[in-house]
Amino acid sequence: MNPSLFSPEGLAGVIFLILICVTMIGAIIATCTTRLIRSVSGLAVCFVGVAGLYYFLNSPFVAMMELLIYVGAVCVTIAFAIMLAEPDEAKQARKITGLSGGLAAICGGFFAYALAYAAVNGKWMTPAVKRVNDGSLKEIGLSLLTRYSMVFELVSIVLLIAIVGALVLAQSGRDKA
């Protein structure tokens, strides 16, 4: 059964397709361009698409976090690293030679097949419709502080180690580096 284009289901499908297109186009720009700064921009577009998908799946909080962390922090950090690291000429990515392209295609194809196979044939615990509100602000907060509190605390330890590491690196100061 195919819903008509202008019914709510049909429009939702169109929006879903648009979001997938944005994600895919971003990913393709990120991988295919030769300038690193453009691939960071592509990555940002890809993240925006993913955020849109989260929003589409009724998880607005995760969508906003995707924007805040991945676009606002990760992409900016990568862009910084690129600007501070090398001059423009050296940034032209190397030409891919011979075998590696084919190998990449085979690996990618295999991976895509495995994912698709798992998605189609895997047994899902509960139907998705019943868990549609699991991505809401309240649900995420509750599960982070009850069921997943251990993981939550472990993540904070990782962050603490990262901060201490940064302090150790910066300890020697600017003049002694």
Partner: peptide
């Protein structure tokens, strides 16, 4: 009315930084 309005403000405001970087580059 969004029940995550505040976080939305910060999320979209942080995108502005990237566009300044892109403009500068």
């Amino acid at each position: 009315e969004f029940n995550f309005g505040l976080i939305m403000m910060f999320a979209f405001a942080s995108v502005g930084g990237l566009s300044i970087l892109i403009g500068g580059w």
